[in-house]
Design a protein around this nucleic acid. Structure first.
Length: 877
RNA sequence: GGGAAUUUAGCUCAGUUGGUUCAGAGCAUCUGCCUUACAAGCAGAGGGUCGGGGGUUCGAAUCCCUCAAUUCCCA
């Protein structure tokens, strides 16, 4: 068999993904003989295509799930998608517009059938793309937040919470998006600094000839909705106006002048116009003073008839026109440039209009309590833990959750309005009818009921995700099915910190409310994938590489490792294609290591004399590395786990071990070494598998033919055995000697082919004797001898041992002396510091014995080294 | 305006209770090599006042104060 010198990933990828799928190796079912390990995917939006954020996030999940599977756990990764009300509705509306269909011209049912059609066509794209990445989800379990049973779950929960009195309907000032024509939560509003103007407007005082007061406002178009003018009670400038009335310019309506602490004496003129319908703070003032609420702005952001003037004009056009009218009327005192923070819709970028509206709310005060405690007490652990702070501050200051959205795509609110003006909340219209007739003693028909037009916030369905993917019916029946009993709570959740509150916190709330139990044990928060300029990678900026294209070029394994090389938990990932290239190179390195081993001819008649030490050393080193790797995994330091694996494979296995045991060209290898080496390689395949599933499965089967049961994906994860620390330390010292010899070759321009005779002056010759064969091979020595010194030879020092290499050519004695002097000087300086420390009584008295002992050893080592160096120097002179 | 986080090599980051894991890793850079597994490679080298300043301590990247810069959350 001959293998290409370069690993070609694409063939292996499709072959092994098909193999895993056909043999159902990703699938999981209840089995009480095994420990369950479950992850629910953060369901990607049906609108999306795979981006770099998904790649990072899902690679992490796949690493975790694959490792758990190999550890013998019953690993279940549930995939699915989210219906994403606002985003999807926007896409569908845009799609219809292109077809020349206006959303307003069709009814709800027609719209929804277009939306479903759209979802069927595009909704599964991301999941298909994840397969290319190697994601080992149990695809038979794929769920969608608007599946019939999951929808029922949402409705049941709404009804239940309403019955518990936790859901209520109320008038609130909401963030209205006049373009999307929907209310947004505070978190969906992005504040931007906008250059605007502060308009100073004069209001006449009623009953006086020419007395006026001046207010400053950024929104002159709302003066028609003014309900009062407020002054600060401590502001003597305006005390005389109290109790009088002011007249709104242009429309000549008179309004009271009131006192309120809220007014900032410093800001503007110190007089505040109060417009309860169009400003959150004014609304509060309005409640305090029982002011009339005059709403002059329509849903689409134009002025309505209550404005009396400029009816039908857009709010921004009206602003300009009002300013002009005021100027003409002589009531515009001045205009001033002013920057203010203006809220914009995250989805449509429209300027948010504070608007009073009737919405559905979930009371958050009580329901959040167990969710806060769980995270604060580390019942649910956040990685990295710094997010606990953020989590707490949000939960402490949480506001009631506005759960209604003025959209069609989503779960329609199960509230039914009756002809008598009342409403009933029930799962279906039929149930609602029964309740209604009973409650009000009426004899209504189904046709008399009118269901609420709005749908629920998308997060009101995804907060149930860790429960509903296993058992959507539990909310209605209260009876847990087997899946839910077995897989819940899930183990780990991998998601982005941006949705810590939107989603993670709410899942925790729902978990405690409905299961009385946390939804997951660990939350791993990834960073944002950014480009080199630090900008978030996004399709709209065009700064994101196409993930599938990357996979094509570098291989899925290369992309996976590339993403993980530089992504500690909670830190942003500054993406650079170089990382992915490094991943590809790593795959190639492993491929070639295998080519080397596979190419050896085995001769069972040879006894293994030389390679015992190498084998023992590597065994120890492997176990030490595995212990490290496990430790990193246990702390969710996935990047570090990968880096430790990378170094184990590249440095220890390839650069050191294989070079130690490699037979001469075209010479055979002994059977024992060969078998040990293959066994080592197999262990490496196992440890690498979660990171690089395709390459490792491919090589696993190249090593020898295996059946499905023995596929790598389901092979047992290796256990870290005891290791010989002393041997690892000794080897490190020998490696240092090898490096020094190589350094001499490199700096003197001597060919690596020229063998050296090495003489060692040491107190511990046994150390070198046990590694002699290795030393000879790796440093290319013709002999190793032990002795005090060698005349006219180059020398170097490792620890307190001295090494001599005689060269055929004459050495530059002066340069050598210079080098030795430099090193002596440095070591003396180092010794000085140590001695100083040790002669400080307070150090010796206060520092722990162990620390003092270490310092004393430093002193002894340094003194020995100086002596060795000085001897060498003396011999040169 | 209130709160939090971050600042260590050219880049991205480790550095746990203050003391040998203490100044580290990977990448990048430089030098020499197409040495029969791998140039997607091998061998070697250089590179940092641990953001600035002050303090506590026998001892500070680590603890405290202060200033600065960056980022995020809330208003």
């Amino acid at each position: 068999m001959s293998l290409s010198t370069k690993y070609n990933p694409s063939e292996a990828e499709s072959k092994w993904y098909d193999f895993w799928m056909e043999n159902k190796l990703f699938s999981s079912s209840v089995d009480y003989n095994k420990e369950p390990y479950s992850i629910v995917i953060p369901p990607p939006n049906v609108t999306g295509v795979l981006h770099m954020g998904h790649m990072l996030n899902n690679t992490l999940q796949d690493v975790l799930i694959r490792k758990a599977r190999m550890e013998g756990k019953n690993a279940c990764w549930v995939p699915g998608t989210d219906h994403a009300s606002i985003a999807t509705e926007a896409k569908v509306v845009a799609m219809l517009k292109e077809k020349g269909i206006d959303k307003k011209s069709i009814n709800r049912e027609e719209f929804l059938s277009y939306a479903w059609e759209w979802k069927e066509k595009y909704g599964g794209i991301i999941l298909e793309q994840l397969k290319k990445l190697g994601a080992s989800c149990d695809w038979d379990r794929t769920k969608f937040t608007m599946d019939a049973d999951l929808s029922e779950a949402v409705i049941s929960v709404f009804v239940d919470l309403h019955n518990k009195g936790k859901i209520y309907r109320g008038i609130r000032m909401v963030n209205w998006d006049p373009q999307g024509k929907t209310a947004l939560s505070d978190d969906e509003v992005i504040f931007k600094e906008i250059q605007s103007k502060l308009y100073y407007i004069n209001y006449k005082i009623e009953g006086s000839e020419d007395e006026t007061l001046t207010i400053a406002t950024t929104r002159p178009e709302t003066i028609m909705a003014d309900a009062a003018i407020c002054i600060n009670p401590n502001d003597s400038r305006f005390a005389h106006l109290k109790g009088k009335k002011a007249i709104i310019p242009l429309i000549n309506r008179s309004i009271p002048i009131l006192e309120d602490d809220y007014v900032d004496v410093e800001f503007g003129t110190g007089c505040l116009k109060v417009t309860p319908a169009h400003d959150v703070n004014d609304y509060e003032i309005g409640i305090r003073h029982k002011l009339e609420v005059i709403d002059i702005i329509a849903d689409d952001g134009t002025l309505n008839e209550k404005a009396q003037i400029l009816v039908g004009e857009d709010r921004f056009i009206a602003r300009k026109k009002i300013a002009k009218l005021l100027k003409e009327a002589g009531q515009l005192a001045k205009e001033e440039e002013y920057t203010s923070n203006v809220g914009h819709s995250e989805r449509t970028d429209a300027v948010i209009e504070p608007k009073l509206s009737l919405q559905w709310f979930l009371k958050m005060e009580d329901i959040t309590k167990p969710a806060l405690t769980a995270v604060m007490d580390d019942v649910i652990a956040l990685y990295p833990p710094k997010f606990k702070n953020m989590y707490r501050s949000w939960m402490d200051n949480v506001r009631d959750w506005c759960i209604s959205r003025q959209l069609w795509w989503g779960h329609q609110i199960p509230a039914f309005y009756l002809p008598n003006g009342e409403y009933v909340v029930a799962k279906t219209a039929e149930e609602a009818l029964v309740v209604a007739n009973e409650k009000y003693g009426e004899n209504y028909k189904l046709a008399d009921l009118k269901q609420d037009e709005d749908v629920l916030d998308t997060w009101f369905s995804s907060w149930l995700w860790p429960i509903s993917v296993f058992d959507p019916n539990v909310f209605a029946t209260g009876e847990k099915n087997e899946d839910l009993k077995y897989y819940y709570p899930t183990n780990d959740l991998v998601t982005a910190p941006e949705i810590l509150f939107f989603w993670v916190a709410r899942m925790i709330i729902a978990g405690y409310e409905y299961m009385g139990e946390k939804p997951f044990r660990n939350v791993y928060l990834t960073g944002i994938v950014r480009d080199k300029q630090g900008r978030k990678m996004s399709k709209s900026l065009g700064n994101s590489p196409d993930p599938l294209e990357l996979i094509k070029i570098y291989g899925a394994d290369g992309v996976r490792t590339g993403m993980l090389f530089s992504s500690p938990a909670g830190n942003d990932l500054p993406f650079d294609e170089k990382l992915v290239e490094q991943g590809r190179n790593f795959a190639n390195k492993i491929w070639n290591a295998f080519r080397l081993i596979k190419g050896w001819e085995v001769d069972s008649s040879i006894q293994n004399h030389q390679n015992q030490t190498a084998i023992l050393w590597y065994e120890s080193r492997f176990n030490q590395a595995l212990e490290e790797i496990e430790d990193h995994f246990s702390k969710f330091r996935i990047s570090d786990a990968l880096m430790s694996t990378y170094k184990l494979v590249w440095d220890d296995f390839c650069s050191w071990y294989l070079e130690m045991i490699k037979p001469e060209y075209q010479k055979p290898i002994d059977l024992e070494t060969y078998e040990k080496t293959l066994a080592f390689f197999e262990k490496i395949m196992k440890v690498l598998h979660p990171f690089m599933p395709f390459l490792t499965e491919e090589l696993w089967h190249q090593i020898k033919g295996r059946d499905v049961k023995n596929a790598l994906i389901v092979s047992p994860w290796p256990k870290a055995d005891e290791y010989n620390q002393g041997m690892i330390t000794d080897a490190a010292q020998v490696f240092e000697v090898v490096s020094q010899v190589r350094n001499i070759r490199a700096s003197k321009g001597i060919s690596p082919k020229e063998a050296f005779a090495l003489t060692i002056n040491t107190q511990s010759p046994d150390l070198y004797k046990s590694f002699e064969a290795i030393l000879t091979k790796l440093a290319n020595l013709e002999s190793v001898s032990y002795g005090d010194s060698v005349e006219g030879a180059l020398s170097f020092v490792v620890k307190s041992d001295e090494f001599f290499i005689p060269l055929n050519e004459s050495i530059d004695v002066e340069a050598e002396k210079e080098n030795l002097k430099k090193e002596i000087e440095y070591t003396k300086g180092f010794l000085n510091g140590v001695v100083k420390k040790l002669s400080n009584e307070r150090f010796v008295n206060n520092a722990p014995d162990q620390v003092v002992a270490i310092e004393k050893k430093k002193q002894a080592d340094a003194e020995a080294k100086i002596k060795t160096l000085e001897d060498s120097l003396a011999k040169l002179s």
